[in-house]
Amino acid sequence: MTNSSPAAKADTAKLEAESRNATKAQFAEFWYYFSQNKGAVIGLAIFALLVVMAVFAPVLAPHDPDVQYRDSFLAPPIWQEGGKAAFLLGTDWVGRDILSRIIYGARYSLGIAVMVVIFSVTTGVCLGLLAGYMRGVVDVVIMRIMDIILSFPALLLALVLAVILQPGLKSAMFAISIVLLPHFVRLTRAAVLSERSRDYVVAARIAGAGHIRLMFTTILPNCLAPLIVQATLSFSNAILDVAALGFLGMGAQPPTPEWGTMLAEAREFILRAWWVVTFPGLAILITVLAINLVGDGLRDALDPKLKRS
């Protein structure tokens, strides 16, 4: 064996720089294909804004979301007659500033979606890997359970779970995770099935890689592309489902400024004060749209790449 001589040490720095360059080039290529899709870039910008909004909510929000201004119930937005400069998007029926509630609501919606997606991705990927890699009985059992989950209308299942586990944010999140789970399991399993017979997997097996290594180190990284796309789309689904559960009264409970709950609370004022429902609704719409655009861009950037390698 060659021992590390001074020359070899100098090489180390060069090697590492080269290695970093390779990683960078990988990212640059990804960004090139992603940025070809203008919609995706716009979506990403909006999404970044939303994240900033959620993180800096206390700084950005003009008012405390829970403070009720008794002198201005149902004040219209600023540009409408009777609007007040203090309440840009108006107030609701107990005098809370809608803009501030939406800004704080972003925290809930995004936060919930993140948790839900993390939970269903990790569980789904593990189950899918097991099913696709082991095949046989394990595969049958896992996939049949997923089929059963899929056979329920998603929202109904979430509703039932939320009711069983007591209405509240936590059970809503759990319920939505379960509903999203089968998509990840199926996707992972399909990807694993197509990858596991490829030569590089066999090569790793010959090299002596065990099952766990084969599953997580060899196969999994090559199945990530469709999973990332699906995770993005599930993110928007989760936001919608949380809002829907909130609207049905099974998600976040008032007075939490969650967008769906805000809609639900405002139901009876729809005809009198359009802004109490319009703005939370718009917030949901814009967020979901932005994330879906990003998902589209990711698909463009990741999918052809898989085909080329």
């Binding site: 390779a22 490829r198 030569d199 590089y200 090569a203 002596g208 890689a209 990284p221 390698s309």
Partner: peptide, 23 residues
């Protein structure tokens, strides 16, 4: 097929070291 026999997500160094690492 040299296009299928190398793990697309594995750098060359790791490809070569894998047998040593495992055995």
């Amino acid at each position: 097929n040299p296009y299928g026999s190398l793990n697309p997500r594995q750098k060359i160094g790791h490809v070569l070291e894998e047998p040593l690492l495992l055995n």
